[in-house]
Every structure is written in C-alpha cells, then in structure tokens.
C-alpha cells in the first residue's frame, strides 16, 4: 500500500497520522518543523482515510516530539496519532491525549488577565469540552474556542 511505503521510508523518526484534513501545515508551523536540522520531512495533505474520508500525515526523519509538542498536536487535531519509527518499524503507536489542564502552552487572549501581566503567572486552562475543543482560563475565566487556539498558541511561541 502507498501509505505503508511512505512510512517505511523513514528509518528512524516520527509519523503524525490521522491529522484532521487541512491541519498539517498548521502543526508544521507551530512545531517549527522547518527548523528540524535538515531532517527529511514529508507532509501529506487530504490523503485517504478509512475513518474520516481524508486526513493529513506528517513524517519526520530523526525527530521526536516533546510532551509539550504533543499537546500542540492534540489541541490542533485531537484525533491524531503519533507513531515512533525505529529501523523502519513502528515501535510505538499512541493517540495524542488532551490533558484535563493545559499549562503554559496556550496564551490567554484577555489582555487584563494576570497571566499577561506578571512574568511568573503562567497560563493554566481547563479543558471543558474536547469535541469541539473549548478551554477556560483558570485565572480570568475567559473561554477559548477551537478556532482561537492556533493564534493563542502562536502567541506563546513567538
């Protein structure tokens, strides 16, 4: 199968599979994958999926995701899976998990929030809905919807 062929081209690295169709480039830019030190990288957009019709896939040679980076993936595409490849084989396959509480990753969009006004006050959001994603700031109570998440994450990484 075409999919297997593509995955197997990575000797060692990470395959982010089952990304919601059209979201791969967003994950690519949030994870700054262009800075992966010359790693081979493939992005498949709108490829066939048995489950949802179409999906995106990102494959990166010699690159593994930190727990924080896995949260970014979960926030953008809660149904994504992450496969760890070693010696051309999938050695670990896990679904990304959105934690109950997300610390530091997302910036609060409320300019009056203490998390935007004290260098020590890190953000903390409770996940009040997973589908669609909805977060509430543990400090100022503002809610963040799925469509606001990309800009809220980008702001923390700039």
């Amino acid at each position: 199968m075409e999919k297997d062929l593509l995955i197997n081209r990575i000797k060692s690295g990470t395959v982010i599979d089952h990304i919601a169709a059209g979201k791969a480039t967003l994950i690519y830019s949030l994870l700054s994958l262009e800075k992966s030190g010359g790693s081979k990288l493939a992005i498949l957009i709108n490829t066939d999926s048995n489950r949802t019709g179409s999906k995106d896939i990102i494959k990166i040679d010699n690159r593994w995701l930190t727990p924080e980076e896995l949260y970014y993936v979960a926030l953008i595409s809660p149904d994504a899976t992450v496969n760890i490849i070693k010696s051309y084989k999938v050695t670990e396959k896990k679904k990304v998990v959105l934690p109950e509480v997300i610390e530091k990753v997302v910036r609060c969009q409320n300019g009056r929030c203490i998390t935007n006004n004290d260098p020590e006050a890190h953000t903390k959001f409770r996940v009040i809905s997973k589908d669609p994603i909805k977060l509430v700031c543990a400090y100022c109570n503002i809610t963040i919807d799925a469509n606001q998440i990309p800009s809220s994450i980008a702001a923390t990484r700039s």
Binding site: I114, T115, A121, C137, Y139, C140
Partner: peptide, 14 residues
C-alpha cells in the same frame, strides 16, 4: 484588590 483578572487566584497560589 487589583485591576488584573485572576490576580487573587494567582496570589493564592504563591
């Protein structure tokens, strides 16, 4: 009393 939303919660943590 502060003009920042959530400042009392943050204060209680530190």
């Amino acid at each position: 009393r502060s003009r920042f939303d959530g400042s009392a919660r943050f204060a209680s943590e530190i």
